[in-house]
């Protein structure tokens, strides 16, 4: 028997790995988006685990909507990224500082 605590700790570890990834890859926007995906997968695993152990399907419905929003976010994020590369010639975070006072 795998306890609910094991699943929650697994998603805890994945969440923190995603957090470290955001710190480490902070100059690369593509990898930043991928780290956000990692964090979302961790959160979704939480939802699915609670849904299984509490016998309530609402958790899985939530994961469904989270997946939808994440897909839309990635589509728009990559579109913005393409636009940024077209205008600046680079996608490094360091060159996107034109709003800096």
């Amino acid at each position: 028997m795998v306890s609910l605590s094991s699943y929650l700790m697994l998603s805890n570890v994945i969440f923190c790995i995603g957090l470290v990834g955001i710190f480490v890859n902070r100059t690369n926007i593509i990898t930043l988006l991928m780290c956000v995906e990692l964090i979302l997968v961790a959160v979704n695993t939480n939802f699915v685990a609670f849904s299984h152990f509490l016998g309530n399907e609402a958790g899985q419905i939530f994961v469904f909507f989270v997946l939808t929003v994440a897909a839309a976010e990635v589509a728009i994020g990559l579109a913005i990224l393409t636009l940024l590369f077209r205008n600046r010639g680079s996608i490094s975070v360091d060159v996107t500082n034109s709003l800096k006072g």
Partner: peptide
């Protein structure tokens, strides 16, 4: 990043540990 992640992991471990969500509290369905 490692320091921040370690703090977050430690805090969440306190909340999500076996005392709160173990098999004796939430039995496997």
């Amino acid at each position: 990043g490692l320091v921040v992640a370690a703090i977050v992991a430690a805090e969440m471990s306190l909340v999500l540990g076996a005392n709160q969500f173990g098999l004796d509290v939430f039995s496997s369905p």
